[in-house]
Amino acid sequence: MGRTSTPADRFTDLPDFDYERHSVTVGDSEARSAAGSRTESGDGIEMAYVDEGEGTETFLCLHGEPTWGYLYRKMIPTLAERGRVVVPDFVGFGRSEKLTDREDYSFDLHYETLAEFVEKLDLQNVTLVCQDWGGIVGLTYAAHEPDRFARLVAMNTFVPTYDTEMADEWYDFRNFVERVEELPIGMLIQNATATELSDEELAAYEAPYPDEASKAGAYAWPDMVPRTDGGDAGEGEKTAAAREKLKEWEKPAFVLFADSDPITKPARDPLRGLIGSADEQPDVWVEGAMHFLQEDAGEEIAEEILAFVDRT
C-alpha cells in the first residue's frame, strides 16, 4: 500500500485559511462498520482536520470530490461563533495522508475512517453539515450512529443505491476523470462554481496534490457511487440500509440545495422526501449557486444553518 503526505509548505499563505492543522491516526484499530460490527482497517493513516470554536453545539463539516476542508473557509467563522467546528479532510484529500494506489480506496475505507475519526474525537450533539461525497458517507454514518447526531444539514448530495439512475452530467464528469492523464482539480472546481475564483484560490484547491499519485483518491471517488450500472462493491448495501433508517429519522433535518447544480438538483426533492423529518423545515433553495455552494454562498449558508439550530 503506497502512501504519501503533502509537504506542509504547500499549505502556507492560503487565502482566508490560516487554520491550525490537527490530526488523528485512524485505521490503526478496529473501526465500526455500518452493521455495527468491527472490522480491521489496516495500518494507521493520518487524518487532518480543522478544529475551531467551542460550546455545546458541534458542527461536523464534510467535503466531497475533489475538494478538501478549504471549501468550508467561508462558513467556519460564522459557525464558530456558535460552537465547535470540526472540518476533517477525508483520507486522500487536503492535509490528510494519501494512498497512492487507486485500488486502495473504497467506500468502506472512507466510512470506517470517518467513523473512527468521530469516535476518537468523541464528537457528541453533532450537527452534520455535508455535501457531495461528504453526504453519501456522512448521512450513511449518521443513519447508523444516530446517538452522536443532533441534526442533519444535507447539501447537494444524496444517498444512492444500486437502483439509482445518475444524471447525464454525472456520467460526463465520471467519464472525464476516467480518461484524463492529469486531473485538473482547480478546473473541475471552477466549472462547478458560479463564483469566479482567484488564481490563489484555485491554487489552494490544487495545493494538496503535487503529483498524479497524490490524486489517487480523487480519481477513485467518482466510480464508487452506487448506481444501476456499477459502483464500488459492498457500499450499495450500506447505503440501502441507511436509507431505511433515514425514513424513520425524527431529529431535525434541513435539506439545503443550490438551484443551479445540474448534477444533484434532481436529487433534492427525493432526499427531502426520504428523511423522515426533513419536510418540517423551510423549503429553501440557495439561489445562484452551483455544485460547490459553499464557495458561491458560504456566508449565507452558515446563517441558514444557525437559524436552523435556533429553531430546533
Rank of each mutant, 00 (worst) to 15 (best):
N125E: 08
M47K: 10
G64A: 07
L62M: 12
N125S: 04
N191Y: 03
K251M: 05
G92K: 02
T157N: 08
P222K: 14
W221C: 08
G42D: 00
D101R: 11
P226Q: 05
M187P: 02
G94Q: 05
I185H: 11
W133H: 10
D101W: 09
V153Q: 14
V87D: 12
V159A: 07
D269A: 00
A194I: 09
G64V: 00
G92E: 06
T113S: 10
G92L: 03
A142T: 12
F158S: 13
S37A: 11
V86G: 14
D269I: 02
A307M: 07
A302F: 11
E119D: 14
K215G: 02
K74G: 12
F257V: 02
G217M: 03
G273F: 03
Q131L: 04
L79E: 13
L123D: 12
T228C: 09
M224Q: 08
F254G: 05
R38H: 04
L202Q: 10
C130F: 07
E52G: 04
N156A: 03
G53N: 11
T127I: 01
V225S: 07
G298D: 15
D269W: 00
S37D: 15
F117Q: 03
F254E: 14
L79Y: 12
A142I: 09
E200F: 03
Y70C: 05
P270I: 04
K251Y: 05
G64M: 03
A267F: 15
V286P: 07
A150E: 15
G94S: 04
G217F: 13
G27P: 06
T6C: 10
Q124H: 15
R95D: 06
V126M: 11
V159F: 14
E116S: 12
G288V: 06
I263Y: 08
L121G: 09
G230F: 09
E248G: 04
H22C: 13
T39A: 15
Y141R: 08
E169G: 08
Y105D: 05
L128W: 07
F90I: 00
I185N: 11
V309G: 07
P270S: 02
Y141V: 03
A289E: 11
M47D: 02
A194T: 13
A258S: 10
E280P: 02
E169P: 08
T113F: 05
G273K: 01
T193S: 10
T39P: 13
F308G: 03
S198G: 07
R272T: 14
R311I: 08
K215C: 02
V286H: 08
V180T: 05
A142R: 05
L306V: 13
A167W: 03
D261K: 15
A278S: 10
D104E: 15
V153I: 09
D122I: 00
H110K: 04
E299I: 14
V91A: 06
D43K: 15
L109V: 02
M1C: 06
E200R: 01
P146T: 05
R243S: 01
R272S: 12
